[in-house]
Structure formats: structure tokens, C-alpha cells
Nucleic acid binder design. Sequence first.
DNA 1: GTTAACGGTGCAACCGGTTGTACAACCGCG
DNA 2: CGCGGTTGTACAACCGGTTGCACCGTTAAC
Lengths: 338, 338
Amino acid sequence: MTQPVRTAPTLAEVAAAAGVSRSTASRALNDSPRISEETKRRVRAAAKEVNFVPNARGRALAVGRTEIIAVLVTEPLSELFSDPTYSEFLSGITEELSESSYLPVILQASSTHERNRAREHFERRSFDAVIDVSPYKGSELLEVLCELGVPTVLCGQLEGHPYRDVFSTVYSDDEEGGRFAALAIKDRGRKDIVAVLGPQDNPAVADRLRGYRAVLGEDLPDANVIYTGWNSGDGYQAMHQILAREIAFDGVLCGSDRIAAGVITALNEAGLSVPADVSVVGFDDHEIATRCVPALTTVRQPLREEGHMAANVALDMIKGAEPTTTVMHMQLVQRDSL
Amino acid sequence: MTQPVRTAPTLAEVAAAAGVSRSTASRALNDSPRISEETKRRVRAAAKEVNFVPNARGRALAVGRTEIIAVLVTEPLSELFSDPTYSEFLSGITEELSESSYLPVILQASSTHERNRAREHFERRSFDAVIDVSPYKGSELLEVLCELGVPTVLCGQLEGHPYRDVFSTVYSDDEEGGRFAALAIKDRGRKDIVAVLGPQDNPAVADRLRGYRAVLGEDLPDANVIYTGWNSGDGYQAMHQILAREIAFDGVLCGSDRIAAGVITALNEAGLSVPADVSVVGFDDHEIATRCVPALTTVRQPLREEGHMAANVALDMIKGAEPTTTVMHMQLVQRDSL
DNA sequence: GTTAACGGTGCAACCGGTTGTACAACCGCG
DNA sequence: CGCGGTTGTACAACCGGTTGCACCGTTAAC
């Protein structure tokens, strides 16, 4: 054996080194008020001495918690990866949890195989709570979680789902965001609008389009709605195609700020000025929005705050709180592209 | 309390229901040869009856394993998300592990805060093994893992790192892949080459470029190397810029198949024929490569197999195997774009 | 001087499984 | 009938922590 797998020191060793009992050592390390300062000092010194860290397995069994929260991803990872909103949202979760002793881990469960593994670990209570990033109706995993009574937070609107009084929900109002963007471009007096959206099968995209339509009606004809990827290159390519069609338009609603950046590049190359000739509105309030020339008017989705909220709701539920529903609100960010 | 948090049934309840002791119940459920068939049947029936699933915490403490493997991501998630190779690789890991009882979870550790949380849970031995997707030299986490003796697999070449005899390594030879692509385009007789690569700070991109250079030398001048994103829109945009420069070229090496798809679109729009006028070679053997017109000649990186390998190596190390180093080989996939 | 109150500590039980070992019942054999 | 050997089961210890409760020695109050 080249590898000296030092077995980790146990509480008993610390106690022995400090000359106290296991229970006293435990209380000292957990800062119980019943232990004298002097003893605490001795025990802490001994713990540091032998590099003691409480073993997760023993601790979990005793306190009934693993202090691990699963972030459940039921769609294929590749889809998740191509949607930029997730990364910000996930950062919000980890950011918030890093204040606590809980550790968020991402759990992929897109194939049946993976779902079975996940189910198994849910049943075993490997996790204290679950945050479902993209819940869908009829998910077997949600059924299992409901049955087991595992604290669960759904991120996304699940209309008419049967778990309303069992699970918590956190989502932002995409339709409202769409209305904000459309209202802004309408107030500017634009009449012929083009929409360059994200992928067609994305539910948020559908909600936003509904918001656009509610405000613009016939000013946004079906023919002017283009579905594409989320990146600037995609926006660039889409705008090229629109220009090639030689239709008249004076406003562009974009599904993401990166799309908008590509759109602006393509417009400029075609000799069109933003915002003099064409108004452009983005979505997300991504960092790139401020770096665009002109700076991008956009709709801010409070993704990071949504993550914070989801994390906090999960922690509350672990402590026994009742399920709640939280709607986050979109916000128009006025800049110069309108 | 609206929520009837049914506390999960324990082994003791199963044993009582079956009329045997806890130990017998345990052995029966684990299919021990020492238990009679008749008793096993009774115990299994009782377990099914009360919906028994062994509690992960108790089990973990007893057997010394949590059966959870952490997939460590040390770069920011957004970066991970924008690199398409990861998703395939991660799928390989989960795919392989779904055959075992182990569950892979993704652990984000890009901020200092997150790294501290991760470190804590490593020390507590919350995970049986760690697969580091993007290891870098001088990572404190690697140091901790080494010290703790946690079975660890590094995915990626870490030159001259001090952990060679402690950690296992799995990586594919990007430079070799670059050579394959360059050789193919050279054999075709192309002399003026352009490279449209991924992000400049990506180490794999650097390795591949080294491979290109080793074969092509001056046929690939510095000025012809463009760094961009990984998507088709990015390739489209990059090729537009190249065409605008009006330089002479007859071959394009692309950093991804999606980039190549965009490149081909742009070339076609400019009236250039592939492969008659210009040869194009991709990278990854992404699904899109076969759907391109013409079908894309590309370099296949065995990402999924790499994931399988990493997972298996991790399992072996958990069983006590010595650390190993595995190099996966690239492969040229001949199609019609050359 | 006895007693009550109190701060500090240790014993032992407990969380929910697994496993070494002892033991009882049964078998066939001499 | 007594023996050794097999089979099936139960007891109890153990994994590594936490925690209710009993107990000890002080000190203050009467």
C-alpha cells in the first residue's frame, strides 16, 4: 500500500487527548453553554491538534440531517447548459446556502435510469431537501417526494399541479416581463415589431411571447417571430435572415441580451442605426447589456434573487415551515437602445 | 400541521412485522446465504408491506460509505455551461454509475465561499469519491483531498502535479486531435488555412492549436487564428469577418462542429462551395456533423467513454485500487467536407 | 451546620442500520 | 443414545456522533 489512508480521528480520540468524556467533547465543540470556557479551550486545542472534523455519517445519523440539499435537474444537461438563465439562478442558490452549513449539489435525472437512482436516494433520505429547477407535471419523482414528505421547492409555475399544499413554489412572471418590454417599445411609438426569441420549446419563451402579444397585437405578426439559440451569434444570424427578407420593421424584441447584442451588430453592419432607425429591447439584464453600444434597454429577471429565495424557502421547510408560493417580479431597465 | 410527515419505517418495524430479529431482517433483505428461503420471503413481504427503504444515514454509518460521488466543478458554472463538451462527459459519468448503486452529484466550487463549504463536506467524508472535471494546479481542494485520502479522479492533464501517485487521471489527447485534423487537411493539398477556435483561455483549445501548428507550420499564420464562442452563430459571425478581410484561404479548421456548421452557412451564402472551393474540418463529432451539408469531416473526442472511464476508475479506487493514468485517443471521422 | 441552588461533567441511551459470535434445533451416524 | 456437523436465528457490539439525566463539588442562604 503506497497510500497511507490515515483513518480520520474520531471524537473519542479528541476526548481522550483533552482528558474529558466524549459527551463533554461534543458539547464543547458545539459551543454548549453548559461547558466552562476553560474546558472548551482544552477540547478545541485537542481537536485542532489531531485535525478533527466530525464525521458526516455519524453526525447525520444522530441529528437526522445530512446537510445536503439536492438541486434536481430533470431535463437533459445539454438543454440546461444552453439556457444561460440557469447558471445565474444556480449561483443564487449556492450563494445563499454558503451562509448556512448546507451544501447544494446538482442532481441530473433526465434518463429513466438516472431517475431511478435519484428516486432510490430520495427514499433513503440522502438529502434534507430538494429544489426542482424545472418541474414538470406528471413527474414520478415529484410524486415520490410528495409521498416521502421530503421538503421540496419547485422553481417554475406548475399550473394546476396536485402538490400545491405540499411543495413550495418560486417563479418569476415571464408574461409580465414580456408586457414590460412590449409596453416600452410601444410607448416609443414603434409599430412594426420583430421578435427574436430563444428556443421554441422553452416555456419561458412562450410566456414572454404571450406578454408581447397582449400588448402589441397585430403590430407583432406571426411571420415576424423567430426562434433561435440564446447567443449573440444566433441573434446575428437571425437578424441577417430578417434583413434578407426586406420587410419593414422599426423595433426588435429579443429573448436574451446576448441575442440583442448580435442583432445590434448585424443592424449596424447593414447601415441601420440603433435607436434612431430601430429600437432594440433585450431580456435578462445580462452583464453584456451595459457593454453594448448603445447600452441595452432590457428586462431584468431577478434570477439571483430567485435562487436566494428558493434556498431560503428550502431551509425554512427543513425547519418545518409550511409550503409557500412566491412570485418574483420583472423590471424594465431603461438604457439607450430604445 | 397539514403535512402528515410520515416518519419512514425502520428495520425494527419490518422485523417485528415479520416476527424475526433486526439482524435476521437485515440479512434477509441483503440476501445473505445464512437465511432460509422461507424467512426471506416473509421478511421481504413485510418490507414491501410497510414500504421499507433502508435509511441512508444509518446504512452509511454502518458500512462506512455514503454511495454518493461528487463531480467537482471548480470553474464558474457559466463557463462550464458554455463548453458543450462537458455535458456529454457528465452524461458518460452518470450513465456508467447508474449501473452501480452510486449516485453522482455535481458540486460547484468556483467562489471561495463555495470552496470552503465543499472542503468542509470533504473533510466530513460526505462523499465516497471525487471526480474533478477541470483540475488546476495549486487548487486547495486537491490538497485537502490528497491529505484526507479521498479517492479522486482528475479529468484533464495536470502537468507536473504533485499528486501523481495519489490521484487517478483520465484525459484525451487534444494535441493529437489537432494533428489529426491538420494532417487530413494537409493531405488534401490545402495550403492556406484558417482556424476558428473556441475561447482563447480554454486549455483544450491551446493544445489543439499546438497540434495544428505542429503539422501546418507557416500554412496557418497567426493572423488566421480566430477565437470565438462554441456555437454555430459564432462560427457564422467569425467567417463573415474573415470574408470581409478578403484574404485568400482554402481550408478552415474549426474548434467545434457547431462552429463548423456556422462557417459552412456563411461560406455558402458568400457563394463558396464546400469542399470544392474550401475544405472544412470540425471537432467533437457532434450530432450536427452528420446533418451538415456536406456532412462534416471531424475529430471525435471520446467524451462519453471518458466519462465511463472516470466513473469506473472512481469505483475501483473506492474498492481500494491503486491510482492509474488513462489517455483516451482521438479519432478522425472522414465525411464529405474535405 | 445543614440545605438549596447551580454550574460543570460523565454515564448511558439513542439515531438505524450491519455483522461477529453464540446458541438452539435438527440431522445422520456409529 | 450420544456425538459431530449443519442450518437458521438471535443477542449484542459496533459505526461516530448527540443529548437527557443523574451526579458531583461549590457556594450562598438560612
